[in-house]
Structures are given as structure tokens and as C-alpha cells.
Computed example of a mutant assay.
Amino acid sequence: MPMQAAIVAEDIRKAYGPTQAVDGVSLTVARGEFFGILGPNGAGKTTTLEIVEGLRRPDSGRVEVLGQPPTPRTRGMLRRIGVQIQGLTFFERLTAREQIRTFAALYKLPASRADEVLEMLGLTDKADTLTERLSGGQAQRLSIGCAIVHAPELLFLDEPTAGLDPQARRNLWDVLRGLNERDGCTVVLTTHYMDEAEELCHRVAIMDTGRVLRADPPATLIRDLGGVTRISMPAAALAAEQARKLFPEAVVDAEEETPTTGTLTIRTTEPAAVLAELAARDALRGLSVRGTTLEDVFLSLTGREYRA
């Protein structure tokens, strides 16, 4: 195992009856890396994470975390990793401050460290609130606080920003980015938010049906997909039929609610030519341009059908 690797998983498999939840997953995560695992519901993300964390044993395959197997759990390993899982579970009848101070005490840390993490996550004003009375977003942030109170070397986060409002999401991004960049913490997270993965992760693995389809930096995945640019404008600026005649190689979608409202979208691989023509027709007012994103890559690899 290379010294710089925080995680090595080789051909891990896990089945539940006839369902193959994890089907030959191999991953390497470098120390200090911010690594994302993406996939539709049922792709095997959470099971893969639980195996690496040592919460589940694989049916076959090999896993090493910080140079040793994650199971059986050891006291030394538990001090080096932090885990935040999807299901929020707290000690009953404790306030937010008491909850996080309890976790700090388990690691023999002073109460001041717990209070520092409460402030970091914007929960100081909720310190004396019982955990069962916290909002979903506040409870989610407290759960993450319990996972990072001991400043772990390796942090596992399973959909950490689910249920958070946009402001809280962005603030949490800053916290996680600081843990990674300033403190050197290796972070592994699952998320359904493509913008989150694109913003935070050095590399992402896209999973489906228990397998890793691609594992690369977001920019590499986007570049490899090829550049389709979406140019959107008010439908009143240019008639759809006229746009189709002007740009026969492009795909033109019109969503017209009334003759004067709605949106016209032109999908093209030659945005410069389209924009030049629109400029010549004085049709740039209200226009927006969006290039290929990680969401486009995700849909290209996993499909667009609904998942249970």
C-alpha cells in the first residue's frame, strides 16, 4: 500500500440476498484528498462507504484505511477517523452543547473544543436547545460537529448537506474546505448535489448498480464528455422556427407559456457562431450561457430514468 494512500479498496463485494449492492468496487483515495462518491439511489454508495468505514464487512475483497484493515475496530483507528452517517441519532434529553461535549469527552478533549465546533457550525445560539427540538438542518450540522470534534485525519460524510438551506450549505462547504486545505484532513463524501461535488472534490467516483463507472477529477470528466453549450433567452427575443433555420446544427427547445413569456434554449457545440449571430440581431438581452457540467456527465453515465 503506497504511503500516501489514505484508503485502498480492491474488488470489494457485498450482496443482500439476490441483490448485489457492491459489485467489485476498487478505489484509492490519497491522503489529503477531497473525494466524492456520486450515484443514483441504490447505486451502492452508502454500502461502499460503510464497508470502508468498518461498519460492514464485505463478502470478498480487501480494504485498508490509514494503513490497516478497518475491521476489527481498534481504539487507535477510532481516534483517527470521523464518521457522519445519514440517520441522525443523538443521546436522548441532551442539549446541543451537552451532546457535542459528550463526544468531546469520549476523546478526552476539553469542553472548550466542543464549544469551538458549535461556533464553527453556527450553532452557538442553539447550544441550550434539546437535540429533539432542533430543526432538520440544525440537527444535521450538529451531527457533523460530533464527527469532527476530535479533528480526525480522515472524515466520512454521507450526504452531509441534505436538508440544509442554501446559506447553511455554503457555510458548511467553507468548514469542510478548511478542514481539508488548512488541517490536511482527508474527506470522503457521498452527495446528490453535483454542484457540491464539482466545487469541493479533487476527484469523484460515479457509481451505478454497485460498480464504479468513472473516477476522475470533475474537470476531466466534463472535458471528456464534450462541450455542449446551452444558450437560453426570453422566447420573445427570437421565434423558435427562426432559430432552427438560423442554426440548423443546433437543438432548439422552446418553452412558451404565452406569446411574450417563456424560454428559448439553443444547444450547440459552436457557441461562438450562435452568439455572434444573436449579437448581430440585438438578441442578447436576458441571455444566459451554460457549459457542460458534472450533472451532464452524471446523467450521461447513469441515464435519466427514475429510480426508486
Rank of each mutant, 00 (worst) to 15 (best):
A9F: 02
E10S: 08
K14G: 00
K14C: 01
K14A: 01
G17P: 12
T19I: 14
G24V: 04
A30D: 12
A30E: 13
G32M: 03
E33M: 10
G36V: 04
N41T: 09
K45T: 05
T46L: 01
T47L: 01
I51Q: 02
V52C: 06
E53I: 07
E53G: 09
G54T: 05
G54P: 13
L55Q: 11
R56P: 00
R56F: 01
R56M: 02
D59L: 06
S60V: 02
V63A: 05
P70N: 05
P72L: 04
R73H: 09
R75C: 04
R75A: 14
G76P: 06
L78N: 14
I85P: 03
I85K: 12
I85A: 12
G87Q: 12
T89L: 11
F91D: 05
A96F: 13
I100K: 09
R101F: 01
A111Q: 06
R113W: 00
R113K: 02
E116Y: 03
L118W: 08
L118S: 07
E119P: 00
L121K: 14
L121H: 08
G122A: 02
G122L: 08
D125G: 05
T129V: 15
L130F: 15
T131D: 10
T131Y: 12
E132W: 06
L134D: 15
G136Q: 12
G136T: 14
G137N: 12
G145S: 04
A147E: 01
I148N: 13
A151V: 06
L155R: 13
L155V: 12
F156I: 13
A162I: 14
P166C: 15
Q167S: 11
Q167Y: 10
L172S: 10
L176S: 12
L176I: 15
G178K: 02
E181A: 09
E181L: 12
D183M: 04
T186G: 06
V188N: 05
D195H: 01
E196P: 12
E198Q: 14
E199I: 01
E199C: 02
L200W: 07
I206R: 06
I206F: 07
M207R: 09
M207H: 09
M207Y: 10
D208E: 13
V212S: 08
D216H: 14
P218R: 10
R223L: 05
D224Q: 15
G227W: 09
V228W: 04
T229W: 00
S232D: 01
P234T: 00
A239C: 06
A240K: 04
E241D: 14
R244L: 00
L246I: 07
P248V: 07
E249F: 03
E255S: 01
E255N: 03
E256K: 04
E256A: 06
T258W: 02
T263F: 00
L264H: 03
T265V: 08
I266W: 02
T269L: 07
P271G: 11
P271Q: 11
A272R: 11
A272M: 07
A272E: 14
A273I: 00
A273L: 02
L275P: 10
L275F: 04
D282W: 00
R285S: 00
L287Q: 01
S288R: 15
V289Q: 03
R290E: 15
R290G: 08
E295F: 08
E295G: 12
V297N: 12
V297Q: 13
L301C: 15
G303Y: 09
R304S: 10
E305Q: 09
